[in-house]
Design a protein around this nucleic acid. Structure first.
Lengths: 339, 339
DNA sequence: TTGTATGCGTTATCAC
DNA sequence: GTGATAACGCATACAA
């Protein structure tokens, strides 16, 4: 049997009503065993599959959730997505993945598309450099459950799953200090983004707690690309008083830093120690493995998804909102372990 | 205005019919400018967004396409997806990404879910180790456009966009021969998968064309993981007559090979040369950069998407099916360039 | 230029 | 146990 078939096609063929077919297919208890079997067999034979669009329209539930990330080719994000899928697939949800490429317009556009598609919820890592919350407000006004992960904004009524980025920055910096470093530079991400600001604040606090004066020449804001890491590191190395270590908020920037430092014929970690952030796989595989901070992405995804499930299955009038903060894990490797 | 609003809500508020609202929203030419403006303003005010589910049900077109890949955390696949998105977003399509994790059941399950969701087409990189085509047949029976990329099966009526894997394998091997290698091993992927078989055949043909006898001890089938690369390489190095070079069908396996070779205190590329496959970013960033074969993933995604568009916009009765084969590009780097 | 009626594929609510 | 019907939100053929 070719083409798409509906319950009406089955009904017509069996000379019964569509309602009966529907009931049989849904294992409604008040249907005769004989009819049920007949319907199921015919459905298979006719290659029937349920039209979830119709079901969604009828029920007001699409069983789709939208996931919005800056980009999927970062191991961190693809791992979060894996966690989300592992939690949501068994519950019958389909996951629609969108990439914002850190572009505000694309973010807005994707959110509108997801709302139009009647998703049952949106899990997102928000760009969040802007003050405007137009897109977010649209979601909230439509009462669509919204959960932030990793990159969040503090908005009433929105749950979030993040790591303690302050602590991550603190641990990374403290580790460098413990290794004997005194002149610690920080290659930060966009400081208008909360996670990067938190990591930077952790860095500053660690300096303070260890009686090291913050040197503003040692702080450079840069985007998460290898090339930017090279450029920024060149600036650091050209200072009259260059740093003896670098804590980067991005593994890719850390990699760029390493490339640049090697060009200057300096030894890592003895001349300059490096710590990155995110535990991208390559940090482990490099000959000179990179010390970094792990963010438990799969777990983060699972938790974000389960928070969504809690919210969507919440029949009470009491709205559930959670702010979950996971601990970061410093992974010490060769790039910062002096011999 | 809270909650979701429909064209009926707008109609009621303005004391006009829903049909007029619909027409105004869709810029139907035969609507007065005044009404159009009134409707649009009210729609904004009421935070209206179109319910694409209803539209899809009505029109029989969901404007969703499904993309099925083994996993998104491989740069190759996430890049293909980027290409697909770049081509399909401007056309108003939403992309639903599914991962099979190389699991046949998951593949089947995902396909069913996509069909239930009434996707307008499916772009997939098929697992394809099995002979059974149940899932594929379901797609074809429902006349849903299907396009394979990268990993394909030869099935009538299915378009495909691939690279010439045979040529990729051939070029890689020829390059090693040109570098003076005579004992070339091949770490292959699952040889029941066409791309890996093709790469292996390219390898064998290059040997043949250069008068080098194929040594079956030099061929090991392995899955695309770093650890497996280490294990397999250990076996190669323990042979009485170990190889002087390795062509791997996977960058990750190549990386494992490099790790293992270093443990044995052999020099790369002078003692053993290495070529990988896929141009994963880390191959470029490693201190010892890895020679590899680029598959033009973004372009592949764009082409796959445009083939889909052609098929779906094809109003004629003539079915369009294309088999597009892109050329692989060998990128020579340190791991195989002898000094 | 606008309104009325219909159907897309389901399921739920009545009836019988 | 089963059938008829309405409703989900939208676009459109047909009327007016």
């Amino acid at each position: 049997m070719n083409q798409k078939s509906t319950i009406y096609d089955i009904a017509k063929k069996l000379n019964i009503s569509a309602a009966t077919v529907s009931r049989a297919l849904n294992n409604n208890p008040k249907i005769s065993e004989k009819t049920r079997k007949l319907v199921n067999d015919t459905a298979n034979e006719m290659n029937y599959t349920q039209n979830r669009l119709a079901l969604a329209l009828k029920s007001g539930k699409s069983n789709n959730v939208g996931v919005l990330v800056p980009r999927i080719d970062r191991n961190f994000f693809s791992s979060v997505i894996r966690g989300i899928e592992e939690c949501l697939y068994p519950e019958g949800y389909q996951v629609i993945i969108c990439q914002t490429h850190d572009d505000e317009n694309l973010e807005m556009q994707n959110i509108e598309a997801l709302l139009n598609a009647q998703v049952d919820g949106i899990l997102m890592s928000i760009n969040g450099t802007t003050e405007k919350n137009d897109a977010i407000n649209k979601i909230l006004q439509k009462k669509v459950p919204l959960i932030f992960f990793d990159r969040k904004k503090n908005i009433d009524g929105v749950s979030s799953v993040t790591i303690n980025d302050f602590d991550g920055g603190y641990q990374a910096t403290q580790h460098l200090i413990d290794q004997g470093c005194k002149k610690i530079a920080h290659l930060a991400g966009d400081l208008s983004v909360e996670i990067y600001k938190d990591r930077c604040n952790g860095y500053k606090q660690a300096l303070l707690d260890n009686g090291i004066k913050f040197n503003e020449n040692y702080l450079i804001e840069t985007i998460s690309k290898v090339e930017q890491g090279e450029d920024s590191t060149k600036k650091l190395l050209n200072l009259k008083n260059p740093p003896d270590s670098i804590f980067s908020s991005s593994d890719f920037v850390a990699l760029g830093a390493i490339q640049e430092i090697k060009k200057h014929n300096l030894h890592i970690p003895n001349d300059i120690s490096i710590v990155g952030f995110s535990n991208e796989p390559f940090t482990k595989f490099m000959e000179l493995s990179i010390t970094t901070v792990d963010q438990s992405p799969v777990e983060m995804g699972k938790i974000a998804a389960s928070v969504f499930l809690e919210q969507v299955n919440n029949s009470s009038n009491i709205e559930i909102h959670k702010k979950i903060v996971l601990p970061p894990k410093l992974l010490v490797r060769k790039s910062s372990l002096k011999n």
